[in-house]
Structure formats: structure tokens, C-alpha cells
Design a binder for these strands. Structure first.
Lengths: 229, 229
DNA sequence: ACCGCGAAATTGATCGACCAATTTGCCGAT
DNA sequence: ATCGGCAAATTGGTCGATCAATTTCGCGGT
């Protein structure tokens, strides 16, 4: 009589595949055996193998291309890469601000180069809503929207995606240290003028000015958070 | 903020299913028809339908359980999540290069400021491996590792995470248009000198030079990909 | 009325097969 | 020697089928 072999669980197949890569001494960039050969070596069907490969590709541990094969990604078997929760625990406020200072001025420059008229209009709208905010919480939400509008104005969804990645970490990092003496931003809040300078630079399509304006704005924010520097 | 996937044939099933839910007037908490009934109504196989259901479940749009059925989740749209797969379909090579030019020079500057001695050593090692590559595939993997080593040298895991995010999209997008006249990079390949200049700038802790070196390197890569610009 | 059990319903997982899309490399013609 | 084209290799996607795991529900007995 024919006994069906115990089918490997899907997670088991992923673990088996990872073990195979590790035990096989595959280094980053190396090519894995074809799928139809792996199914023989690992003892699973192609459907199961491909599910495991899909999972590993989502994690960035491997990459594939039709006609070429399956390859081990540059950075290794990769325990938990990209976990957003991990990041927010490990990133310090200083690191976060340095990352913002690295990315956002460059985004502002791209916005100045590529912004459509409609994007500039939306930018002004977001700026107005910042001024009209009637509580610190509301102001933070509107300020968030303003910065995202700048990223949207680049017309580059990859840059927008990078900004969102950064922004999600920013929201998750605990701030605690902000001292607010009034219950809403004063009308001479320096950010208002800085936002205005940034919008003006983008509208004038002056990429250097936009870069500088965003940099100054973030340095101002940094100074408020950490004290003078 | 809805990233809609290009209606490639497989995502067609997802779109069809979403349309069915919307058109059927299903409200949050309602139960969808069984899979074997849906395949008849939507005209797809159960494998394809289940792939679509998997995607919707990952997005949080539906909820399933063995023996009970499939239900519409509480918060309908399932906004956001910014899937990586969607990105690689929508980002053009030009957008990708502009994003690299926005982020990577800033990373190089941070690396020059913050790199430890050990990081510089690892950087030189990665550079050597680029020169020693004996095939274009190997060179690409080593070049990938070199650029990541620069991001690691910043000592800022948030910047590293941003780089990885960008890099994963790069691997999925950049697979065309490259013409190679030899089977391995020639020894006077311009990237070698550019990598050297970058490493020297970082080792000298010269942030302006590192920024410029990375920018020049990427512009050189861009020129090779797209022709002179 | 209550309880228990088993059949039916339903999703979960896997399998093998087929065809499509893409890359690679060989082989023949010029 | 060079170029073109075609066949092989390889991953991508879909299909129908089978079995497993879980829940629901009706039906019969007490």
C-alpha cells in the first residue's frame, strides 16, 4: 500500500530552504539551483517551493528573474530586515533627525525641479492649514501633511515611498522632550516663515533655494528639540 | 494615497474581486460567497482566486477562517501598506535614478562624518571585491555590496533602512537597457576610480568631497544607462 | 427540552501538469 | 569572424484535483 509522505508545513518549507542556502555555502550574488531541481532535493512540490521563494523574496533575502534564475541577495539570510517596529525601538532621536536632514532637503530640491502647478497649489493649501491649526496636536498633523505634500510634489513615487518610510519611523519614535508653553503655536512661530520660504522657492523652481530652505527649517526644528547646536 | 497596481493579468483577479465586493454591496462584517462559488462567478480558477484573497487578507481588507468563511474586514479600504511589489511596477528607471541621486550622496556625506575605522576598512574590502569581479553579474553583486557598505558606514540604521528600501526597488527595476561589450568590467572601468575617490573622501572625513564623489559616480552610472545627459 | 454525534460545508495546503515570458547559448549562414 | 535565428533552460502564472482541518447544523435519541 502507498503511504503518502508527511507533507512539510509551509513554514517548514521556508525553514528548509533557508537551511539549504546556509548549508550550501551560497554567498550573496550566487545562483541557486533551478526550481525543478530544488523540489527534488528538498522533497517538496513546486507549488510549496514557490510559496517559500515568494516569502523569501518579499523579505528581500533572494531575488529572481525569468530566464536567469534565483539569486541570493546581497545582504544575507537576513534575520528580520525592514521590521518597522524594530526600527522605532533602535533609532535615536538624533539619528532620526540626521536622516531627515539627509533626505528631506534633497526631496525639496526635486520638488522645486518637478512640481506641477497643481502640486504648488496643494502645497500652499497645506501651508495655510498649518497656520490655522488651533492646537499643538492639530498643528503636528498639518505639519506632517505639509512635509508629505512636498514629497508628493516631486512627482516621484519612489521618493514619496522613501519619505513615508522615514515618516512612519518618525511618528513611532517617542518624543517626550518637547516643552510647550502655550496650547497652540504662536502666530510668530518660526516654522511658519520657514514653510513660506520653502513654498516660495519651490514655486520659483529654485532648486538650490528649496534645498537650503528645507535644511534651515529642519535645523530650526532640531534646535527646538535638542537645544542649540 | 491609494497605490493602484497596474492591471497586469494577475492583479486583474484582485481588481475583479474588489469590484465584486464593492458592486455586491458587501458591508464590513458581511460574509462573502464560498470560494467554489466565487470561482464560477468571477471566471477564475481557485488557485488564482486564492492568490487574490491572500493579497486582500495581507492588506487587511478581508478576514478568513477555516470552516466559517470569508468576511469583509471592519475598516474597508485597507489603506496604505505601500507594497514593494507595486512600487517596482510603477517606478520608471529615470525616477529610480533621481531617487538614488537624492539619497545616496547624502548618505555618503553622513558616512564621511560618522564612519568608524572599522567601517572604512570594510569599505576598502568591498571596493577590492568590485575590482576583482570576474563577471558582470558578480560585479553587480559586489557593487551592490559596496554601496550598502557606504550606508552601513553612516552608523545610522534608519539611513541604512532607507537605503535598503531604495535598493530593493532598484534590483526589481534595473534589469534592462544595459549593453555590455565585454564579459567582465574592464580594468579602466570608470566606476573603479569613482569608488576610489569616494572611499578616499570618506577616509579623510571630508563630507563635501564624499557627497560630490557619490554624486559624480551616480551621474556616470546614469550616463551609461541612459546615454549622455 | 436537551444532549451528542455525524454529515455537510468551508477554508487550508499541496500536488502535478500545462503554457507563457524571458534569457542564454549554440549553430549555421554569410 | 560576424551576425541572425532558433532551441534549450529557467522562472512566472494558471488550472483542476485531492486530502486535511475546522466549523456549522440538522437529526435522532434520551
Amino acid at each position: 500500500m502507498l503511504l503518502r509522505p508527511e507533507p512539510l508545513e509551509r513554514d517548514d518549507a521556508i525553514a528548509t530552504l533557508e537551511a539549504f542556502i546556509a548549508a550550501g555555502g551560497y554567498r550573496p550574488g550566487d545562483r541557486l539551483p533551478p526550481e525543478r531541481e530544488l523540489i527534488g532535493r528538498l522533497g517538496v512540490s513546486r507549488t510549496t517551493l514557490r510559496k517559500a521563494l515568494d516569502a523569501l523574496e518579499r523579505d528581500g533575502a533572494i531575488w529572481r528573474h525569468v530566464g536567469k534564475g534565483t539569486f541570493v541577495a546581497a545582504h544575507g539570510g537576513g534575520a528580520g530586515s525592514g521590521g518597522l517596529a524594530d526600527l522605532s525601538r533602535q533609532v535615536t532621536p538624533v539619528q532620526l533627525m540626521r536622516a531627515r536632514l539627509s533626505l528631506e532637503p534633497a526631496i525639496a530640491r526635486e520638488a522645486a525641479i518637478n512640481a506641477s502647478d497643481g502640486a504648488v497649489t496643494r502645497l500652499k493649501l497645506a501651508q495655510d492649514r498649518c497656520v490655522e491649526a488651533n492646537s499643538w496636536d492639530d498643528y503636528e498633523a498639518q505639519d506632517d501633511a505639509f512635509h508629505r505634500a512636498v514629497a508628493e510634489a516631486t512627482g516621484n513615487i519612489l521618493l514619496l515611498s522613501l519619505f513615508d518610510h522615514l515618516n512612519q519611523v518618525r511618528r513611532a519614535v517617542a518624543w517626550k522632550t518637547v516643552i510647550r508653553r502655550s496650547n497652540r503655536p504662536p502666530s510668530d512661530h518660526s516654522s511658519f516663515a520657514e514653510h513660506g520660504a520653502l513654498v516660495a522657492a519651490i514655486e520659483a523652481r529654485s532648486h538650490a533655494a528649496a534645498h537650503a530652505a528645507m535644511r534651515e527649517h529642519l535645523k530650526s526644528v532640531s534646535a527646538r528639540l535638542f537645544g542649540d547646536d
